[in-house]
Design a protein around this nucleic acid. Structure first.
Lengths: 254, 254
DNA sequence: GGCGGTTGGTCGGCATTGTCGACCCTCATC
DNA sequence: GATGAGGGTCGACAATGCCGACCAACCGCC
């Protein structure tokens, strides 16, 4: 792969830095964090600001991400075929199951949520579209890791952080989890990511039968589980939904 | 303003082009649209792809926006102070009014929706966070135009497109609308943007008493209006909400 | 109130870096 | 199998963006 454009790589690093460091950052912070000269950093920030990717607090001079990113992120969703096809099916899934439904795709070292249907009861819920979830502990992540070789590599290279006391952190144990996931065709997460929260997910395939994402639902363990783990009716609903979306994408019948 | 970084400007233009042209674009399309050499364009696209801002369909070679934009756009929301403060108040607004609540800020030549609370009845609704609305025909836009000089300039430079038969398109007429908005402290939109839809909005101020955004609600004209226009109780609810958010931002009492 | 130590921001010389356009390769189409 | 259109590569050239020294404003501290 021939050389990439240096200034673009640096600009992307700036954006990622601003996205990571929760609060606003000053010019010098950015420059030193990236090991760049102040003048260089300023040029990048100035251009990014002009384009709307970065905003500057007038009073303090600190920088933060800009509104244009939100607009472009939204445009990304508009074009996203998988999401478009899944809209109606995930809606049904949430309605019939009574839980929140999610659609996720592999992105970098995690699962990027591209669609989220609120749990039907109207409690206060925050939209998680655009958020990332870990590959190794969530149902969506396990499904992607089990069926998508790229995700498999990603999770193998990273470390299996213990998020709760039930998170699977051993490499061999995790391998068995993936085998189980592949064998039964769906993945689960029993309080392995958040205490008291369980999730189920199943893979979505495109017209070439390649895994392109996962749909699932997440809810309080008291509602989602019974004595044997995830309730069978929820597993069936999730798998039906995944099949429906896959068929919609042209994967044909199973 | 000293020179900006050329390659960054071009990359931003590429992203905007991909965001605008609904469907995926090929390398040659992008190059010719921007008047760049193919080699140059390819370098930009390659780098953007490497950074996750652009994805390439493996089969056709066409390019589209990438997932990283969604993630960064979400991070933008996390940092957004106005939105954070407004979360709880807009929630109350939607609950008490029974309509969908919106929070918008000025971005380029329009209103960028940074928060959206669904109408409490659980019909199928699409989230509009990240979407843009026109300045001259929506309640949010009119409020921004009336109270924010920058927005005022933006709308004066653009043209007042007729979106419905009731859209105000004359420059003088629109000036009167802004005067009215300023005089009564809130803005409205009676089927000027979408047929059958009305909206109300009021300005939000920061600690220096500068207008930084607008909150409002939108709904079917049959529910939102009575014989005299927007129902007084909804106007009051919106203005209360705007005041509450402003106070939360440190604007002090009115 | 002077004074170091911040901070964001600017400028000009240098060579690195990105640009250009010709060229290649693959895949449909005819 | 010729043809054309599309994505992708390459290498020479010079325009471009990079660096580091330099300002100007601000803050807190003697």
């Amino acid at each position: 792969m021939p050389g990439s454009i240096q200034s673009l790589e640096r600009a992307a690093a700036v954006l990622r830095l601003l996205a990571g460091g929760e609060r606003r950052l000053g010019l010098s912070d950015v420059a030193s964090s990236l090991g760049l000269a102040k003048g260089t950093t300023h040029g990048i920030l100035r251009t990014l600001q002009q384009e709307g990717f970065v905003e500057q607090e007038p009073v303090s001079g600190k920088y933060q991400l800009g509104a244009e990113l939100l607009r472009l992120g939204n445009s990304y969703l508009d074009v996203h075929e998988l999401r478009a096809r899944a809209l109606v099916w995930t809606d049904d899934l949430a309605r019939s199951s009574g839980e929140a439904a999610y659609l996720g795709v592999l992105h970098q070292h995690g699962v990027l949520i591209v669609h989220h249907v609120f749990r039907p009861d109207d409690g206060r819920q925050v939209l998680e579209v655009g958020a990332m979830q870990p590959l190794h502990s969530t149902a969506l992540g396990k499904v992607l890791s089990a069926f998508d070789p790229v995700a498999r590599n990603e999770v193998a290279e990273g470390e299996l952080a213990a998020l709760t006391s039930r998170t699977v952190t051993g490499a061999d144990d995790f391998e068995s989890v993936l085998d189980l996931t592949r064998a039964r065709g769906w993945g689960s997460d029993l309080e392995e990511t958040w205490d008291g929260v369980a999730s189920v997910a199943a893979p979505v395939y495109d017209r070439r039968r390649m895994p392109v994402g996962a749909v699932g639902l997440t809810g309080a363990v008291e509602r989602v589980c019974d004595a044997d783990g995830i309730q069978a009716r929820l597993v069936a609903a999730v798998r039906d939904c995944a099949r429906a979306v896959s068929r919609d994408l042209g994967a044909g019948r199973f």
